[in-house]
Design a binder for these strands. Sequence first.
DNA 1: GTCTATATTGTGATAGAC
DNA 2: GTCTATCACAATATAGAC
Lengths: 213, 213
Amino acid sequence: MVKPDGATVADDGTEQRILDAADAVFVRRGTDGARMQEIAAEAGVNKALLHYYYRTKDGLAEAVFRRVAGTFMPVIIETMASDLSLEEKAGKVVQHYLEVFARRPYLPGYVISEITHHPGRLPPLFAALAGTQIKKRVLTKLGQQIDERVRTGTLAPIAPEQFLINIISLCVFPFAARPIIMVALGLDAKGFDRFIAQRRETLPPFVARALRP
Amino acid sequence: MVKPDGATVADDGTEQRILDAADAVFVRRGTDGARMQEIAAEAGVNKALLHYYYRTKDGLAEAVFRRVAGTFMPVIIETMASDLSLEEKAGKVVQHYLEVFARRPYLPGYVISEITHHPGRLPPLFAALAGTQIKKRVLTKLGQQIDERVRTGTLAPIAPEQFLINIISLCVFPFAARPIIMVALGLDAKGFDRFIAQRRETLPPFVARALRP
DNA sequence: GTCTATATTGTGATAGAC
DNA sequence: GTCTATCACAATATAGAC
């Protein structure tokens, strides 16, 4: 397309298509295992174009990581800092994460791989996400709720950090370990989906029981 | 050293030193991010010697993965198939895994990265581990214990697979997510250790409460 | 903006001396 | 068994035409 002043503009979102392709390839191969050639092929463009838009492989990798992290970090923060009850928070996180990861089961494995082998990506991510006061917002809120409930005798005492990580662990880990779980339990893809569907039902009451005094 | 018949033998365990070095490098860089040169340097030998003992990078990577997996797979299998009570099993797994991973916190991240990006390593591992009947041994035993306890009204019903994965999730995930947890909660290495120490105390009762009817 | 062609470096792997 | 030297190719990145 040619604008009135003569400048050219991409008809379709080439930059976007490249990012989507990079997302797919980085997630399934890992950042270090991914090849720029494979990303170019998946996007239907030439290798050189990847560098035109993102300069380096690392730049592309960072763009992908930020976008991926942005799809699930805010949800847990907002949910945990909300006014919902502890049980409702657990239920909401379970429902949301199991739904999201059921569509993209390799996402947790990719994220863990990335933070383990490229931890340098984390500080800029958290800086861009909202400063480090998220921590205080979430833990303070959870701490208040816990204190109140313990005082009224409706909750077994638990540190806010432990509550938070317990919920996330129960939701995320099964996907991160999906390949080994499938082999160990003899499941195919459909069988794993059933395992997750069952989890959606059993996890909220499991947590609720653990919270009782 | 020269044996009576004239043949030479390594004084020290060179092959072992290489495997230890490969372990360290693969775990911190990931299999694809690791470089043979770095492994050689860490072992204090030449690159060529790596190929002499393990032929290819992939061969070395597989040897490392098998050894690593062998350090924690058997424990969970034997514990879960034992005659301990469900609560005792949870307690034993918590104690063992938190102890092992406290020493090598990057191990879970490495294993998840490896199974996500190189799932082909799993079938041979399980074949060498004891056939696939481990699955039956563990799940059958757990199923019997659960049925018995539900019948006597001392346990909230739960599928054996869910029980198993819940315990493992709560123990392993915090280490796999260690880098992000440290940034999110503002912890240094010492602070993370305290977080894990607290976990050692709070996890067994957390699980025990969740199991109550 | 998008392509082809190429520069340049990195990296797994082997040959061969000792 | 261990080393030095080197091969062969893969992979990121850039130059320059269109």
